[in-house]
Amino acid sequence: MTDTAVVFVVDDDASVRSSLKFLISTVGLHVETFDSAEAALQKLTPDAPACLVLDVRLRGLSGLDLQAELAARNCQVPIVFITGHGDIPMSVRAMKAGAVEFLTKPFRDQDLLDAVRVALERDRARRQQEKEITDLQQRFDSLTSREREVISMVVAGKLNKQIADQLGTAENTIKVHRSRAMDKMHAQSVADLVRMIEKLKSLSNVY
């Protein structure tokens, strides 16, 4: 795990911050520390996979507030909460809002490192997902409007003959459009194409 993944640690207690940095770095991860939510917000634009280790009780904006703020900014960095005094409502709230884990101090080192690992994997997966969508989107954007028409009907299960009939062109023309579209989309089969279109539909509201 020696890619450029970063772990951001936010805690208002200096010794906790430095000890966390120490601990997490033992597994080869890069750590950046902040003493307040506001400071983290300013620096938090990760280009690499990242996760957040966040204390709930902070001076100024609390950890839960930071979680809400990030969600509002559409920043989906996964969060591992650590706290000195967790209660059930607080932990439920944090988990419902999408946190990876909620640990109470003092926690076992392994628990923290596991949570960080899960968080980073989640972030990686998300980034991968996003990349795929962008790719798909680009490919889709490169289709001509005719090509788009044709594959929308292909995906709906129509035969070439029917498509030709509906669009008022020859079947051969349809076949050409279709094969060009499949190439552009890098689809190996109609089933592939269908999957791609579905993904685009659900994730980017194109259709």
């Binding site: 010794s15 906790v16 601990l23 033992t26 650590i82 000195g84 003092p106 080192d109």
Partner: peptide, 25 residues
Amino acid sequence: TASIAHEVNQPLTAITNNGSACLRL
């Protein structure tokens, strides 16, 4: 309780972290 918990927990957490890190290394 909150007061005790919080004020004692911070150093305890730091101690645990530091100790575990050393053990790993």
